[in-house]
Design a protein around this nucleic acid. Sequence first.
DNA 1: TGTTTTCTTAAACATTTCTTTAAGGACTCT
DNA 2: AGAGTCCTTAAAGAAATGTTTAAGAAAACA
Lengths: 231, 231
Amino acid sequence: METKPIKILVIEDDDDINELLCKIVLNSGYIPQPCFSGTEAKLYLEKEEWDLILLDLMLPGLTGEELLREVNEKSNSPVIIISALEEQQKKIEILRAGADDYITKPFDLEEVSARIDSHLRRYKRLATPKQTSELKYKDISINTESKEVTVNGRVLSLTAREYAILALLISSPQKIFTRTNLFESIWSEDYLGDENTVNVHMSNLRSKLSRANPDKEYIQTIWGMGYRLKN
Amino acid sequence: METKPIKILVIEDDDDINELLCKIVLNSGYIPQPCFSGTEAKLYLEKEEWDLILLDLMLPGLTGEELLREVNEKSNSPVIIISALEEQQKKIEILRAGADDYITKPFDLEEVSARIDSHLRRYKRLATPKQTSELKYKDISINTESKEVTVNGRVLSLTAREYAILALLISSPQKIFTRTNLFESIWSEDYLGDENTVNVHMSNLRSKLSRANPDKEYIQTIWGMGYRLKN
DNA sequence: TGTTTTCTTAAACATTTCTTTAAGGACTCT
DNA sequence: AGAGTCCTTAAAGAAATGTTTAAGAAAACA
């Protein structure tokens, strides 16, 4: 899978520090875009999306604080503040105003790099859609969100009870399920001793599986004990 | 609209510091759960989801580092490390290992609070699905700003409830929505068991869709389970 | 306030699934 | 091999679930 290059906007009016920060970004494997004033930064922000922004507070043109507000209004990009201001009150104010992190000059190169990585990692983790759950066994596949069951590439039309039985069996593929287990798990009632209800549903399920793939047997009866998936 | 309380797991073996951190959490408007060992933390982590975790590195039972790894494997919760270790190398190592932040003892109360807020804000921002201006499915098109729905090129006149049901179905086209899902999402109330309200609105929606395009069936009933868009 | 629209509830009817019954097959034990 | 038990499957009836329509209540609008 092709990964899009990570682009980081570096907003810092001091030439040497800007160059140093760009070198950190580059050495971390990302693409830096240097930028020396608040008004210049505004142009880059309008031009495209940035994966992360390194922002100095003391800037010519627009201030860092104004820029922070604009970034937060218009995009989801994480913002790490780089600042000479050691005043604790300011740090807290900026963190509450929307910054994701606050690093005081003089900074440790490796720490800047580690914090960039940490924020990008968080962003990536939360931006990646959660995988939907899937149960698989042999050529059976169950999508638990859509409740869709396919066997040998064919979609099965199962009743609610049949689906529940199959999902339970596949959730523990080695386990023997007694009729009592099945009944109490799926019917959520105490087992009253009439075995045939489970038997019939099991028979119906087998019948549907067999129609989808006549060459295979999926469910095995253990005489006197219960049912298990056939290995 | 009712918001779910934010729950923060505070993992710290020093009684006084644990109590202080819990007070910060409480004063920030969140619900703290104090926890004094790595092994105790593990139990809480298995028991439920946490909105954020404050984690000391030096712990009895499981170490903070081992816990960090487990949290990252099993959940998406942000982790802020609280540590007495001033060693820069350790900080960098932990940030790279999956921590979202690293605060050195002795800490500033307001800074801890501000950083908690910053991480929760980031999490919330990224967890809230971006509003898409248009939802499409087959020949159905929904403009989420104007609330206009067209099917097969024809504008549908839907009531608020009908619109909400259709938008929800289309937002997850593969998913089965139980009547409970639909009711709780659209009515934002606990489901009291009367199914017919949902049924009637669904029938009305189907009727309007069918009038717009009599050749197609859009909504499929899965007996005993719920409704899904027909693929 | 009066009218219109929408929502909720009730009822009649339709459809599907479940449960029970029963017959025959398969397995286990003596 | 035969008897007893357990399991499988088919079929019928019961139960549950779902659909649509209409009436009354509630909400929205003029």
